[in-house]
């Protein structure tokens, strides 16, 4: 399993990286939505994107809409991990094609439980 972690904060990328590598994921990182799109073009395609909302250059919401425009990327699971926490913002992100939504702050368990809902916790990690 491969995760692309998209956040302009290196601290946040480090926190998320430690959580998903603990589950057995390999990871790549991007500092904004455009960098993430470029990485997906170049490959390898991730199974999962963890996506911040507020970032320079291209925000996470725009990134989600761009990924959803691409038929060949439809199997990539998109999970927002953001401090944006208004009810209508969550609705917007889901409507644009995000599969799950985690509000910052979160604990490692919160990320793992959401991935479990998506069927994205490798079996050996739960054993």
């Amino acid at each position: 399993m491969h995760a692309l972690i998209i956040d302009d904060s290196t601290t946040m990328r480090s926190i998320l990286r430690r959580i998903v590598t603990g589950l057995g994921y390999t990871t790549a990182e991007a500092g904004d939505g455009q960098q993430a799109l470029d990485q997906m073009e170049a490959g390898p395609l991730p199974d999962l994107c963890l996506i911040d909302w507020n970032m320079p250059v291209m925000d996470g919401y725009t990134f989600v809409t761009r990924v959803r425009d691409r038929e060949e990327w439809r199997d990539v699971t998109l999970m927002m991990v953001t401090t944006e926490s208004e009810h209508n913002q969550i609705v917007r992100a889901l409507a644009a094609g995000a599969h799950e939504y985690v509000i910052k702050p979160f604990t490692p368990d919160a990320i793992i439980e959401k991935l479990d809902l998506l069927g994205l916790v490798p079996q050996e990690a739960t054993a």
Binding site: S9, T11, N54, T83, S85, E86, Q89, K104
Partner: peptide, 19 residues
């Protein structure tokens, strides 16, 4: 690192206050 961590901290607090 300090600059980035404090930025993320105020981003989280601020974003939650916004909501």
């Amino acid at each position: 690192d300090v600059r980035d961590a404090l930025g993320e901290l105020v981003n989280m607090v601020g974003g939650n206050i916004k909501s």
